[in-house]
Design a protein around this nucleic acid. Sequence first.
RNA 1: GCCCGAAUAGCUCAGUUGGUAGAGCAGUGGACUGAAAAUCCCCGUGUCGGCGGUUCAAUUCCGCCUUCGGGCA
Length: 314
Amino acid sequence: MYNFQYNNKPNIIFLMGPTAVGKTDLALYLCKNFPIDLISVDSGLIYKYMNIGTGKLNSLKLLKYPHRLVNILDPLEKYSALQFKDDALLEIDKILKLGRIPLLVGGTMLYYKVLLQGLSNLPPSNLKVQKKILYDIQKEINLTLHLKLQQVDPISAKMIHPNDHKRLLRALEVFFISGKRFSDISYFIKKDFPFSVIQFALRPKNKKWLYNRIVKRFKNMLDLGFQREMEYLFYRGDLNENLPSMNCIGYKQMWDFFSAKINFIDMCKHTIIATMQLAKKQMTWLHNWQGIHWLSGCEIKRSIEKIFKLRACD
RNA sequence: GCCCGAAUAGCUCAGUUGGUAGAGCAGUGGACUGAAAAUCCCCGUGUCGGCGGUUCAAUUCCGCCUUCGGGCA
């Protein structure tokens, strides 16, 4: 019925925006009213057993219209931008084959970027190599990650701040695994993206408005039993505070609370602050993003309605 | 009532052997290639509690007052 072709490329829709702006509610509305399937673009929602703190269970409606790429990993496991790209492309393909339109919704901006621009042919990260690099550097006095990178890849060393250990380590890792310099092979492969993308960003009214929503949402998480959820994760025994899953906002602060590092009030305060900081970082990404439509929820609804009507007439 | 201690950035506190001060957190802006809800960078004038005294110079030393701790009655 709906012919959603454009430039011979199938259409997909992005729904971006800062955390707590109301992306999920809007996505669920769209899913209900249009032939749309949802793909989550969220590094927190991939984890099983993390339902309340990630906002997965904020509305039970989410169970009725499930997102794809939700609950695919145990909190013990690690995910990556590359895995997301591969998984998302697979899911997009499946949805298109069903004759429906994929709508990617979430706030993990790197995932959108990697999906659109691709990744250079860099070796995947390897914990053993990282450990070896750190060990070798510790052995020598006065040798730092930054100095080491200067020796093997001066261009990258210039571009990465000396304090940014993660990126320095990554660049060194790339060199020691592939023998090639990060600076030589780390350009985005801007190959033809096989889809025609309509990018919406849900605009927050203002900062105060977003803050109030964040506070309200966190209170709601506590009412839904976030503490009990964390109790299970904390006492499982095999998880630890360094895992990416346990560094998710809310879970990190809850972990500190369960370890008696902070009290309950501080845990709440820290979580709300961290959420505001996340929203700010997401806004920074979005301000520099190309081809985005900054709209209110109503405007996005109307735009999508219009698109579907047009396509139906074709 | 008496004794002791504290009072410095929005918060927690350093510090100045007397020359008007700086960290962490918060806040602001930014970066971002396989951990991204991660990681990292930039941005610091504040009656140094109030009023006096000593001094060329007091946030610093002295006195009084105010507030908050703690102790003794």
